[in-house]
Amino acid sequence: MIRLISLLSGIIFGLGLTISGMVNPQKVLGFLNIFDAWDPSLIFVMVGAIIIFAPLHFIFKKKSRPILAKNFISIENKNIDKKLLIGSSLFGVGWGLAGLCPGPAIASISFLNPSSLIFVLFMFVGFFIANRIEKNI
């Protein structure tokens, strides 16, 4: 069952990215292009997701355990540090260059478009590099 939920969550997430148009980098770049021709759609995607998850998270986090798994995986890190700022800022630069973030990038594997496949390949290379250099930041 846990595995089925993982798959189902991924499918619904992918459908949401598709319906919202976020698998199209032009829509994401349009959102970041606020000083020229702005497409505010991305805000509605985030608001839609947050108005569903915020109240449900608030209710379910009080339960002793999830419905299927043994425990909630807790997130201890609350530090607003150099790593968070450097990492997030660097991510924003990559996001602004190609209009792809990890969710839509992986979902767009389904189009077998060479451009998005190159992006995904080097995103994974980036994961490896970060894993190596992380401790030195």
């Binding site: 969550s9 619904i12 021709a37 702005w38 759609s41 509605f44 043994k70």
Partner: peptide, 30 residues
């Protein structure tokens, strides 16, 4: 600043679905 290609309804619909997907993974799998 001009607003172009704005698709609030499909964006909100997709967002709600994403929120539900995130909820599923949290509520069931933690």
């Amino acid at each position: 600043m001009n607003i172009i290609n704005f698709t609030p309804l499909s964006a909100l619909t997709g967002g709600l679905l994403i929120g539900f997907a995130v909820f599923l993974l949290f509520a069931f799998n933690g």
